[in-house]
Nucleic acid binder design. Structure first.
Lengths: 189, 189
DNA sequence: TACATATTGGAGCGAGCGCTCAAGTTCTGC
DNA sequence: GCAGAACTTGAGCGCTCGCTCCAATATGTA
């Protein structure tokens, strides 16, 4: 499976086509026919290199998440409004990863394996937000900071869904309302 | 569509079969064949009563949501905490339809037809929440009440997703944090 | 060069999908 | 009890799906 030069190149073309299609039509819209047509490859070539369609899809999603994940060093210097802005940009920006992420989360509602993966990345993000809350409002109990982070992320996720369905939706405006007064003033100032 | 007694009964049998199947096998598992076999009805009868398969699915979801409505008549008597409690009950209660609702919303991220339907019901709900905000805090500008309703519903949706993936998640606790102080005190007694 | 192995395209398989349609049956109001 | 609307059936249409198969060809190795 991909031992000769041409084979590896074909593999890359297939992954690239899958990536492009995931971005354009989402997880359910990705068909084998679309992938092979887009990669200009026969179905036989595809199955010479991948065990199944899902095999290719998971590989692309894995790579995409990895590319976005980094948490650069986790230095802990990001403010609450930084995090909110980053999340809004993630949802409303040009990158299609957000849509895929939410569709994956939707699958997680019935697929325990996917649910575990989604929850893990969710928890990591809640921690980041909780830390930022603590820095913003130092007198907060840690549990209270965590609770506020949870609510904030929930709201951002929900607002993101609306934003992705309704292009006219001003996600940033609503998202900023989630900030404590001081941070909101800084952000809108 | 469903004007004679038998027709209405058939309609109920179909909805009941759809409800049962949605609960048992999830949204992907519900096929027309399964519905009609389960309801002991020909495909033609189905299409005499429903415009499409999705039509029946939406109806089931709509009814499930309505079932937890604290003010089905729209009398304008529901408080903010009533609405939040109803949403939490819908998400965390015994009915498996909440899962279906969120999966439908997920499909709306790439399917414009579904997106339109989801957004329509979303807007209706935002209005209900906005009215309740207005009643709770009369000095609020209408636009501000609408904005708070939007954020609140976004948060409830996002928290619902977490709750459905993580059985240990205390959705109600986090949801109540979204209420204004007076209402929160009333709700937590 | 000779040969094994990897890679290729694409016709086509079998299954399953949502949905249509023509024909016959049942119900209701008058 | 009759007209006509509402209801019913289920074979089957047209389509798409993931995937298989295999002869032809390209590639790397000795």
């Amino acid at each position: 499976m991909g031992r000769y030069r041409v084979g590896l190149e074909t593999r890359e073309r297939i992954l690239s086509a899958t990536r492009r299609l995931l971005a354009e039509v989402g997880i359910e819209g990705v068909t084998l026919k679309a992938i092979t047509a887009n990669a200009r490859v026969g179905a036989g070539s595809f199955y010479n290199l991948f065990a199944s369609k899902d095999d290719a899809v998971f590989e692309v999603v894995r790579e995409a998440i990895e590319a976005v994940d980094p948490d650069p060093a986790g230095a802990g210097t990001d403010s609450l409004e930084d995090l909110v802005d980053a999340f809004v940009a993630f949802m409303t920006g040009s990158s299609p990863i957000a849509r895929i992420y939410l569709q994956l989360a939707g699958r997680g509602l019935t697929d325990p394996v996917i649910a575990a993966r989604v929850l893990r990345s969710h928890r990591r993000r809640v921690e980041r937000f909780a830390d930022a809350w603590q820095r913003e409002v130092p007198e907060l109990e840690p549990a209270e900071a965590a609770a506020r982070a949870e609510v904030m992320l929930g709201a951002l996720t929900g607002l993101g869904m609306t934003a992705l369905m309704d292009p006219g939706f001003d996600m940033r405006r609503h998202a900023l309302a989630l900030l404590p007064d001081a941070a909101r003033l800084r952000a809108t100032g």
